[in-house]
């Protein structure tokens, strides 16, 4: 069986540069000037999962991204990694979208591009990290989804078995196709893009889609279609006035043990039994 797979990726500022982010105090906007954009790291895991499926079952991998025109570089990179085609949803009318409007626009893009057996995304973006687009995209597409998938196999032509990361646990699910899976980084190790891949990428098709190319309800896209909006932004200062312990390792350890002892060691014991400590510790009455 050949699978028609779509992978939604996001173009994000390279997390290695987050220390360099500043806020323009006048306009209250984030300055990310000079910070390079990359494919959101975990989205590469989604693409890798798609490429592996294609290698195993045949089919096609289409990459989709909603972003300003510059994100074509990330789409070419995805094609260099092995995706067959790419589409860039770009329009000034899409700007200012929150997760609901973004996922709506992506859904309309996917509807325009064809019928997909499987839609893959990463669990969350490195910049916004809301982790909301996968679930909302599935909702707009009216297909089932699983989020935080760490492992999956195509069990039959209609079904996927998946392991999902829960809190200190792993859940196992069966999901019917067509479906959306948001994968986590431990699912695989994305392949490196090769020199040959880079050269092939430019010969592949990148489709630009504006709002006129899509069947969109204008009240659901961009800022207009976003229920949430951003107020003030700030960069919190977390600085503490530290004290340096110096000397030989033995001297340092002696000072450190004294500090630990001074740091409310006895109080620490007492706190466990107060009302607040009790609540989280689970039921004890059988």
């Amino acid at each position: 069986m050949a699978l028609n797979i779509a992978v939604c990726i996001k173009s994000v500022p390279d997390p290695k540069w987050y220390e360099k982010i500043t806020i323009d105090t006048k306009t209250k906007t984030i300055t990310r000037k000079g910070i390079p954009s990359i494919i959101n790291p975990v989205d590469k895991n989604a693409l890798e999962a798609a490429l592996k499926l294609k290698e195993q079952y045949g089919g096609k991998v289409t990459v989709l991204c909603m972003a300003p025109p510059g994100a074509k570089n990330e789409l070419y990179e995805a094609m260099a990694m092995g995706a067959d085609e790419a589409a860039l949803l770009s329009d000034l009318a899409f700007a200012g979208a929150d997760t609901l409007a973004t996922s709506y626009t992506l859904a309309q893009g996917l509807n325009k591009l064809g019928k997909f057996d499987l839609v893959l995304t990463g669990t969350e973006s490195a910049d916004g990290a809301t982790a909301q687009v996968p679930a909302q995209l599935a909702e707009w597409l009216n297909i089932p989804h699983l989020w935080n998938v760490k492992e999956f196999v195509l069990a039959t032509e209609q079904e996927i078995h998946a392991k999902v990361k829960m809190d200190d646990a792993v859940g196992e699910y069966v999901i019917q196709l067509p479906a959306l899976l948001a994968v986590s980084r431990e699912i695989n190790k994305p392949r490196y893009t090769t020199a040959m891949g880079v050269m092939k990428a430019r010969k592949k098709t990148l489709t630009n889609l504006s709002k006129h190319d899509l069947d969109v309800n204008e009240s659901l896209i961009g800022q207009v279609g976003s229920p949430t909006w951003s107020g003030d932004i700030s960069i919190p200062s977390l600085a503490r006035k530290g004290q340096e312990l110096i000397g030989t390792p033995e001297e340092i350890v002696t000072q450190l043990i004294a500090k630990l002892r001074a740091a409310g060691i006895r109080e620490g014991r007492g706190m466990v039994n107060d009302a607040s400590g009790n609540l989280g510790s689970g039921r004890t009455d059988g």
Partner: peptide, 23 residues
């Protein structure tokens, strides 16, 4: 924002066509 909450809050938001602030 547990594994379950992180996943179904946005679904609920989309179903109710309203906004969700994450994390």
């Amino acid at each position: 924002a547990t594994a379950a909450g992180s996943d179904f809050a946005p679904t609920l938001g989309a179903k109710l066509r309203t906004g969700v602030s994450a994390h």
